[in-house]
């Protein structure tokens, strides 16, 4: 993966890789709170947007990119902890709806206060190059996946999973559920903020309000579910598949069809294939090895 820009500098390949990596960051960050901790937040766009805007404005005002990214991601994490206290009073679908509403409030506020598009200044546009964008995306994606791997093998992750499976039982067996949920929310939002930061470094022009649109949440949720919720490889497979389908379909068909295809796929996964695409392979293999007596 590191060597790709040495082999090819074709813009289409690099764009495709950049997008895939960014979707891996975004969807894996949702996977922490939604997949491992089982709190189906639908307000992920809020943290993506906060990270994106803060990173962009700090960076464009002259600060090093690294500091901008860190500041954006930290703000997203702190914001998550602040709103975590009231919103975690809600459970299950109420939490989902509450966070969705929260992101909508932020979207309306930013759409109204910052209606103008933010475009790179000409000196940046003149030297725009996909290679550093690619490396940054790769670095952060690696960091995200490593963090998720670490979480899934730690007691923190164990606590999160126990909350997902049965919150009352977890509480009864001594798991501090609120603390675990807040931590999961903060880590998840930190990486969502990083995803936003990487995206603003990549996108030459954007509207601030656009960063808070629910579609960021929805893409992440759909990718995680289609790939395999609460797993490490699931969101990666989901993201590769999502971007591939998006790029391929947009060549032949009017835009947006990939969302239709993914929406249908998403419903099928929810109804018939809990566990996502990564569960499909072992299932198929089992069915084939059963040979003549499939049932």
């Amino acid at each position: 993966m590191v060597l790709v820009p040495l082999i090819t500098r074709r813009d289409d390949v690099l764009t495709w890789l950049c997008l895939t990596l960014q979707y891996i960051i975004l969807s894996h960050s949702w996977n922490i709170i939604g997949g491992y901790a089982g709190q189906r937040s639908l307000g992920h766009a809020a943290f993506f947007g906060l990270g994106a805007l803060i990173a962009r404005y700090l960076w464009l005002s002259g600060l090093p990119l690294f500091l901008g990214l860190l500041a954006g991601a930290s703000t997203a994490a702190i914001f998550a902890i602040i709103i975590g206290f009231p919103t975690f009073r809600m459970r299950g679908i109420y939490f989902a709806i509450g966070t969705l509403v929260l992101a909508e409030i932020l979207r309306i506020i930013f759409e109204t206060t910052l209606p103008q598009a933010s475009v790179f200044p000409t000196r940046l546009l003149a030297t725009y190059n996909l290679v550093p964008r690619y490396y940054l995306s790769l670095l952060i994606a690696g960091l995200t996946v490593a963090t998720v791997y670490w979480i899934s093998h730690s007691t923190l992750g164990l606590g999160m999973i126990s909350i997902r499976e049965e919150q009352d039982a977890a509480e009864a067996s001594g798991v501090d559920t609120l603390r675990h949920k807040l931590l999961a929310f903060a880590i998840s939002s930190f990486f969502a903020g990083l995803a936003g930061g990487v995206f603003t470094y990549y996108a030459a022009a954007l509207r601030p309000g656009q960063m808070f649109e629910p579609v960021w949440t929805f893409d992440a949720v759909v990718i995680v579910f289609v790939g395999g919720v609460g797993t490490i490889s699931g969101p990666i497979i989901g993201a590769v598949f999502f971007v591939l389908l998006k790029q391929l379909l947009s060549i032949y068909l009017p835009g947006g069809i990939h969302i239709l295809v993914f929406g249908v796929l998403f419903i099928i996964v929810v109804l018939f294939l809990p566990g996502g695409l990564i569960k499909l392979m072992p299932k198929l293999r089992k069915r084939i090895s059963r040979g003549r007596h499939p049932y």
Binding site: L42, I93, A96, F218, V221, I259, F266, I267, V270
Partner: peptide, 15 residues
């Protein structure tokens, strides 16, 4: 059931 119905509705919302 509640949660999965939310997700199915969410899929319809995309479609």
């Amino acid at each position: 059931k509640m949660e999965n119905s939310l997700l199915v509705g969410f899929g319809l919302f995309l479609v």
